[in-house]
Amino acid sequence: MITEIAPAPERVAVEPARPRKNRRAWDEAPRWQIYVPLSIYLLFTLIPFYWILLFALRPAGSTSLVPWPMTLDHFEKVWNERAFGVYFQNSVLVGVATLVMTTLVALAGGYALARFDFRIKKAFMLALLCTQFVPGALLLVPLFEIFANLRMINSLASVIIAETVFQLPLSMILISGFIRNVPYSLEEAAWVDGCNRFTAFRIVVLPLLRPGLIAVGSFAFVHAWNHFLFALMFLSDQSKQTIPVGLNTLMSADSVDLGALAAGGIIAAVPVVLVFAFIQKWLITGFSAGAVKG
């Protein structure tokens, strides 16, 4: 105990000379305690990425550990012969449509949850939470039946609807949290100035929701882009399938064409990486603004 207390006065004594920033406890970790574990973890993170790049860029049959001589044959092959060009279009369509639908529907619902007290609100909130326990994977059969009845099997609409539905509850909870963080008085001030509820929302609230909406929207996009099972089940026509299904087809072939698989994987990753790079800074602020605090 005594040894622990002893250094404190010393630190206090040095304090005034130092800039404020250096006084903060979390700044005092020795550098090696940051860089050593971080580097080890970075290796674990990056080797798999390097591996897939390596396989995508080196010629078939090569065992070199550097992608040289470099070739783009695998990309050309997978894009044209394995129809990844078509899959890519389908995936973009599914992703963007899911993003738009999820954001709009969740925005409307989230606003109602944040700003109104109404009779079924509690029941509705509970239902939203419960859906988190309902696995889409276990509902494949009844969902298939529903879409068959709606004549939507083999149409991208089925996948878009399914992805939206399962993305909605969480998005709505998040968005209502973001809206709650915007003071109601701002909106009321706009009403006094003659705006109706919708205009007040559009002019006053919507701009403040931007980081949150970007986070939620990108989640919806990335999720729809990545998700595999609904597309696998509902789309049988090859011209309708999405990239994850295409990857699965490549993997489940008898002799896996590793080069094509790697190139396909990179094509699958590029849009997501771009989205991710773009939203990075919004993501953390978006989360801390509403999500975790609930």
Partner: peptide, 9 residues
């Protein structure tokens, strides 16, 4: 951001 299927690949 990487999907389950891509992770598998």
């Amino acid at each position: 951001a990487v999907s389950g299927v891509l992770t598998s690949a």
